[in-house]
Simulated assay, not measured.
Amino acid sequence: MNDAIKPSTIKGNILSAGGWIAGTLSFTDRVSGIDGAAADPGSNGDDYILPGFIDLHVHGGAGRDVMQGGDAVHAIAAIHARHGTTSILATTMTAPPEDIDVALAAIGQAVRQRGKGEARVLGAHLEGPYINSGKLGAQPNFARAATLAEVQRLETLAPLRVITVAPEIAGHLALVRELAGEGVRVQIGHTLGSYEDGVAALEHGAAGFTHLFNAMSPLHHREPGMVGAALAHAQYAELIPDLLHVHPGAIKTALRAIPRLYCVTDSTSATGMPDGEYMLGRHTVHKCMGGVRLPDGTLAGSTLTLDQALRNLVGLGLDLADASARVSTHAADYLGLEERGRLAPGTWADIVVLGRDLQLKAVYIEGERIDLNDA
């Protein structure tokens, strides 16, 4: 127990690991107890108490970008905490080696020391540079093939929890098998690969797909593409539910096809900021009308936060428990985090409290109450 955190209680409709309970949640830095009775939260007007949100694809926020290094990741972790995100993977861009080193060194420091008011940084999502230069999306063109030696060197700078690769690049299938054997979650993304390439990558140990539908070969009934491989075979995939990156109908298709589809923000430095110009790695991007784009109009990440993602999912027809799992539990399970993404005795006290309108009322990270005033 952290002696600096006093015992606390919250009352309401608790989404426990076993289902809804109307009662009291007790915690310090970890959940100590859940007391009450099973109940339909629709039978009363009390607040909702959910597991804290987990975002496995975060590039920035508050005007800061992960690739800046230094204290940028701390500012990013703080703004996302104020929107209910209690854990993140700080996500890199395709860039020259020296830029990636700077970013990962800062991420490694943030992993070792969570600052006051910040989401827990679990490690890095290395989104580039091991992608196809023909499917960059908003990534700068520094794509290159991966080597195991380089990945192992980068791992000394920060824990690489997720790595995005284009499996059709020569040598990458063998690398997928090596990395999967070391416990790294390898995702398929920024790829021109075929359906068959996707199936082969899954057979070699790939575990998921990066921002499903975006920056990958699309579904066609005679050429199913990488989207088809995901819909036919994936257990996990990440998706950006800002309603700009993916049409609601496509989101519903993925929800029916992929059992543990989970949501990410792909958020940029423009998150939480007014319209204007911001940096995404070495790119200048423009925020306008809720979207972030390159000068040519290409979508370049988002300004989404996971509290809004939850509301979007409910707006699409998901019940609150299912929506909660897709911004929390499934991501935790994907990384093998048994003590996050759920509320049960002994789990970390990562908690969000929502009013009946699904607006945030309180956030706790490892028992610390977060100041929401700047949200």
Rank of each mutant, 00 (worst) to 15 (best):
N2T: 11
N2F: 15
A17P: 00
T24R: 11
S32W: 06
A38P: 10
D47F: 13
L50H: 15
P51D: 05
H59Y: 11
M67E: 04
A72E: 04
V73K: 01
A75F: 10
H83F: 15
I88W: 04
T91K: 06
A95H: 00
A95E: 05
A106D: 05
G108S: 05
Q109R: 15
R114E: 05
K116Q: 15
G123T: 02
A124W: 00
A124T: 03
H125I: 05
G134Q: 12
K135Y: 01
Q139R: 04
E150F: 00
V151R: 01
E155A: 09
L157Y: 00
P167M: 09
A170H: 13
L175H: 02
A180P: 05
G181A: 08
I188G: 04
A201G: 07
L202K: 11
A215V: 09
H233P: 09
Q235A: 14
E238G: 14
E238F: 10
D242W: 08
A270I: 08
P274M: 09
G297R: 10
A300Q: 08
D307F: 09
L316P: 08
S324A: 15
R340I: 03
T347V: 07
I351T: 04
V352T: 05
L360E: 14
I365P: 06
R369Q: 15
N373K: 15
